[in-house]
Amino acid sequence: MRNTLKIRSAADRGVAEHGWLHSRFTFSFAGYFDPQHMGFRSLRVINDDIIEPGKGFGTHPHENMEIISYVVEGALEHKDSMGHGSVIRPGDIQRMSAGTGVTHSEFNPLRDRPVRLLQIWIKPDQMNVEPGYEEKPFPPETKTNRLRLVASPDGADGSVRLNADVRLYASILEPGTEQVKPGDGSRHVWIQVVNGKLSVDGEVLETGDGAAIEHAADLTFQGLEKSEFLVFDLA
């Protein structure tokens, strides 16, 4: 069985510029609407955000969504109505289950450089659950030249636990190296390139590109340059 990649080019993403915030939207979000890109399976949002020094999102509400923050560069300060407060940095995975309702704020605490992060929203399997929070570090060495499970419905392999039938893998692939993700056609995959350039089943993807694969068979990833990317394994 041969995989067919439907590529979402970085250059075709939605754009929002607010002075303090520079966003690129893989899927429809806020004032950006594209009926052809409303999400993929339970994956609803991938926002590639750059927040200027000392700026951020004031306290705002969420409900019934699994929210993952993946910091690429810099630092992000988080506070929420559940009583959590922390600064997450590159390599950390933060998961917030909004459930019946939660409020939080996110700021760049640094005064000398921006923060870049991916904001990821996943539709939950169960609605109106009790809100929850989890944060874990996954240093570069734990995901270099391998697909490292960082989020899953059962918390396998030390991953954060999702209220969704989704397994999220993070990887840093060095040039000339190869990784294979097994697949039997029963699952669906979204790939998001964070940085770099790699080949996926012969298709070249670069920074900011995404790709959807329905009924995925084995997928072969090859590093064309040092590359960081995310792989969503979806029901």
Rank of each mutant, 00 (worst) to 15 (best):
Q36F: 12
G132C: 08
E73K: 15
A216E: 00
F40A: 01
I172L: 15
A30Q: 11
D218E: 11
G132V: 01
V129L: 15
V166P: 01
I122L: 06
I46Y: 00
A151R: 00
A217G: 13
N3V: 02
S186G: 13
V193R: 00
I93C: 14
A16I: 14
K136Y: 03
S86Q: 13
T103E: 11
V160Q: 01
H37C: 06
A30Y: 08
V72Q: 12
V15I: 14
M1I: 10
R8H: 11
V71T: 09
T144W: 06
S9P: 05
V204S: 07
F25Y: 10
G223E: 04
G185M: 08
I68V: 15
D12I: 04
H62N: 13
Q179A: 11
E106H: 03
V45Y: 00
R148H: 08
Q36K: 14
I51M: 10
P175Y: 09
V180N: 08
D201H: 08
R187T: 08
A170R: 12
G14N: 10
A170Q: 09
L168C: 04
L5W: 01
G83M: 07
R41Q: 14
R44Q: 07
G99W: 00
S159I: 07
S171F: 01
A156C: 07
E73L: 10
D92Q: 10
L162V: 05
V71I: 11
W121K: 02
E130T: 15
V189Y: 02
N145Q: 11
E174F: 06
E225T: 12
R113L: 04
L219Y: 01
F107G: 01
N64R: 03
I88N: 00
L224W: 02
E228G: 15
R187C: 04
P114V: 01
D184K: 11
R116H: 05
F57T: 04
G158D: 07
K136W: 04
T220S: 13
E203T: 14
V189A: 07
H62A: 06
G14R: 10
D218Q: 06
